[in-house]
């Protein structure tokens, strides 16, 4: 089983890196395709964590809906490859420094997580049935609120997309 974890983890990280910085292509479409790969390998990690429902949602919503939305928009706007522009070296240096520090703080604090009390033999199964029961009992109010959020987003998008909006 461990081999799958390493496989999916490596895929996730490599594809994630290629989304951000692809040495071979500067086209946003490539980035979007690698984002799909990242999300799919994330779904694999979810399966390894026994979160089956979420893995399915990840594939359907993210890989299916969101990324398609990206591709549509990129192609709609007919964006070519990124122009090569001179980088602001000081800015790049500062960014690497800041992000490096962030990664250091995050990774180095992982070892200190005894307080979480991680179980040595996890038994939780993220099945559809379980999530469905929780969703319609304990989480019914957030569920309804989220639907309102989606409605508002939809209205907003329609409003923003009207051409004569000024």
């Amino acid at each position: 089983m461990d081999i799958f974890f390493y496989l999916f983890a490596a895929l996730t990280l490599i594809c994630g890196l290629l989304v951000v910085a692809n040495p071979f292509s500067r086209n946003p479409v490539t980035s979007a395709m690698f984002l799909v790969l990242t999300i799919l390998s994330m779904a694999g990690l979810f399966v390894l964590l026994n979160a089956f429902f979420l893995a399915a949602v990840q594939v359907i919503v993210y890989a299916g809906a969101v990324i398609v939305l990206y591709l549509f928009v990129i192609m709609l706007l007919d964006l070519g490859a990124d122009e090569r522009r001179r980088l602001n070296k000081a800015m790049v240096g500062l960014s690497f420094l800041g992000v490096g520090l962030l990664a250091f703080v995050l990774v180095s604090s992982i070892g200190q997580s005894e307080a979480v009390g991680a179980l040595s033999s996890p038994r939780l199964q993220g099945t559809t049935e379980k999530l469905g029961k929780a969703l319609f009992s304990d989480y019914v109010l957030p569920f309804e609120v989220v639907s309102v959020v989606l409605l508002v987003a939809m209205v907003g998008i329609i409003l923003l997309s009207k051409r004569d909006l000024k």
Binding site: V57, V66, L119, G126, V149
Partner: peptide, 24 residues
């Protein structure tokens, strides 16, 4: 999801569900 799995608590996964919705 990892926290949810290793602390045997479904809440984490519920949160991810909502995050995915809001992210969309």
């Amino acid at each position: 999801v990892a926290f949810s799995r290793f602390s045997n608590n479904i809440d984490g996964q519920m949160m991810v569900f909502f995050i995915i919705t809001v992210a969309a």
